[in-house]
Simulated assay, not measured.
Amino acid sequence: MRVLIAGATGVLGSLLLPALLSDGHTVVGTTRHADRRRAILDAGGEPVAMDALDPASVAAAIAAARPDAIVHLLTDLSGRDWAGNARLRVEGTANLVDGALEAGVDRMIAESVSWRYEPGERPATEDEPAAVDPVTGGPVYAPVESLDRDLARMPHGTVLRYGLLYGAGTWYAPDGMLTREAGAGRVVATTDHTSWIHVDDAVAATVLALDWPAGAVNVVDDDPARLADWGPVLAERGGYAGDALELVAGAPGRAADNGLARSLGWSPSRPSWRDGLGLD
């Protein structure tokens, strides 16, 4: 296939590009920054400029790339810019889907999150409902649900609900922001209950997903955990040796079940976060 990666210089995108090339695909990668074009070229891809928040820019990039499929890995998490990331997930996704449909591209894969489910003790399968705010009655993760609705407009849209990403280049790498904070005695988590996935396993699943059916697929490892379990491990690996570790979770969250992904031919090479969190 000819594949357009939207977000080709991010943590996942920069690893996915060579993985797709080695699988025989031709890859075009988008970037907003002229100084990142060289990284795409050096990896063997074709760079194309794109501002995901500008519909005309998105349409032009898709027209130039002429893809058979689009992989949507756009995020804006530098400095924990949650509002910017939410805007990209809502407006950027809508622009990508609109541009794809206009250009006649029928296949898109998009990055999402596995902790979006209604809280519960049992790992959630893909048909579990989304978490709802008890006060407003609306979804807790509204931008994530917006992405789902937009991908459903595609003739063939696949949403990959990744667990928390760890490994090289992530916040949980040895030099990652959250590992450093944990080493200083404070661990802040999006949710208390979560599933993990190593970046290499996330990339492997994304390559395979070009042939997966439409719909949502959880891409997580086999070892869901509570913050009280993984937080001290990360802190120790970050160098913390005190006895007053602060653990802060923003929401209850939910672990996810990876049975569907396994049935589609994928399995994690890193079954547990315990083998690499804060180490690689």
Rank of each mutant, 00 (worst) to 15 (best):
R36C: 12
R36K: 15
A39Y: 03
A39C: 13
A39S: 09
L41A: 12
D42P: 08
G44S: 13
G44C: 10
E46Y: 07
E46T: 14
P47Y: 01
V48R: 03
A49Y: 01
M50F: 02
D51S: 12
A52T: 10
L53Q: 06
L53R: 02
P55F: 01
P55L: 12
A56S: 13
S57Y: 00
V58W: 00
A59S: 07
A59C: 05
P67W: 04
P67D: 04
D68L: 13
A69G: 05
T75N: 11
T75R: 08
D76E: 12
D76G: 08
D76T: 07
L77C: 13
L77S: 07
L77K: 05
L77M: 13
L77Y: 07
L77P: 02
S78H: 14
G79S: 11
G79P: 01
G79W: 02
R80H: 13
R80D: 13
R80N: 15
R80T: 12
W82P: 11
A83V: 15
G84Q: 03
N85T: 05
N85C: 15
R87M: 13
L88R: 04
L88P: 02
R89F: 04
V90P: 07
E91K: 15
G92I: 09
T93F: 03
T93M: 12
A94E: 04
L96S: 11
L96V: 12
G99K: 01
G99Q: 03
A100M: 10
A100P: 03
A100V: 07
A100D: 02
A103E: 06
A103C: 08
A103K: 09
G104V: 06
V105M: 08
R107E: 04
R107W: 00
